[in-house]
Nucleic acid binder design. Structure first.
Lengths: 201, 201
DNA sequence: TCCATAACGGAACTCCGGTTTCGTTAGTGG
DNA sequence: CCACTAACGAAACCGGAGTTCCGTTATGGA
């Protein structure tokens, strides 16, 4: 007789309220202090729940981060459409830039990336989160192919990744500003490379 | 009377031997288990030194990682020259790819990036490490400008960063393979974007 | 070579994050 | 509405990472 994980038999009601409060508290704490010294008892206090509950339901910091990533993936924004590849990729770059440059969101993303380096389950959740984001924006590259703005055989996922990569690299490896010019440059570079066939497979 | 930090009055002899052993042990442990649960007493055991010494000299895990980054920056490889921008950027991309795809080095880089998200001193050391690497390879873009392969006003640092960024993005946000084709594509995309003037300032 | 002391390490100690226990509260289905 | 139990939380407990103490070893300059 396999025992169900806590919170899975009755996922609604109080259980859902506790999850929401704990995930909100976790996001706040991650943004404030990063991943390293995250303390589940502190999360419990912030969420106004018992620390036993947090240990029972999530067990470890990285499991809590993985659950937060699942929640973030469910909440993420749909893409916009501008009618041109450059316009779409600039919109995407600006969205990523605004997120990473936001004091709370930028730190939160750093923290979840750090957590994912330390735990396979969290890494899976992070990979899924980004796969969902990339899949959300990939159609704009397909549309560009249809409009003749990108060569046949261009991999849409590669193009979308090429827009985000310089912004994340900047966030994680330097203290350089993450401004709109940087975002626009990332989009322009991705468009130029796309047109030149660099992402053809 | 300001007290000197341990190891700074007599930095040679036994002090240097202890540092070398501790940094080697730290690199191994970071590669094996990531950053989160790094235990200074374990590092001391691996290095065959007293744990008091590790706490006295480095104090925290992140300070030890920062010192490891200083050491890594001192050890890094000089750039190669191929005579063409594409050749040079491919060489750079391949070097980064080989490093990140290496089982030990890839994990080590993930771990130091994670550590840098958690501590300002470690972040500074990481930023310096990458600034040194980028400065090492920037001359190849300057040479390309001189040869007419890149437009005047191209920012060499932007170009070198554009080569690395997709590889780090792949390492940190997905489980996708980091192969030579990916490295070559990063170089080709950077060259195409450079030629199109995307990195002109 | 000698000496002052920087740097060292073993052992004892502390404290806080993680674990266990068990009575209480909320949810669900008959 | 009621009975069963999933989920909850307070309190007590535990152990290992971090800290302190003090005798030992190695270094560098006179």
């Amino acid at each position: 007789m396999e025992e169900a994980n806590p919170g899975t038999v009755r996922p609604g009601g109080r259980t859902a309220r506790v999850r929401a409060a704990v995930l909100r508290a976790a996001g706040d704490a991650l943004a404030e202090q990063g991943f390293a010294h995250l303390d589940l008892a502190d999360i419990a206090r912030r969420a106004d729940v018992g620390k036993t509950t947090v240990y029972r339901r999530w067990g470890t910091v990285t499991s809590l981060v993985a659950d937060l990533l699942v929640d973030m993936a469910e909440q993420s924004l749909p893409r916009t459409e501008t009618g041109s590849l450059l316009g779409d990729l600039k919109a995407n770059a600006r969205l990523v830039q605004r997120t990473l440059a936001d004091p709370r969101q930028g730190k939160l993303f750093k923290a979840v990336i750090a957590a994912a380096t330390c735990d396979a389950g969290t890494a899976d959740a992070l990979h899924r989160f980004y796969a969902i984001r990339i899949a959300e924006w990939a159609p704009c590259v397909r549309q560009a192919i249809d409009r003749g703005e990108a060569p046949e055989g261009t991999d849409p996922h590669d193009v979308i990744r090429a827009v985000s990569a310089p912004l994340y690299y900047r966030l994680l490896t330097s203290a350089d500003p993450l401004d709109e010019a940087t975002a626009d440059r990332a989009a322009e570079a991705a468009v130029a490379a796309t047109r030149a066939g660099a992402y053809r497979r």
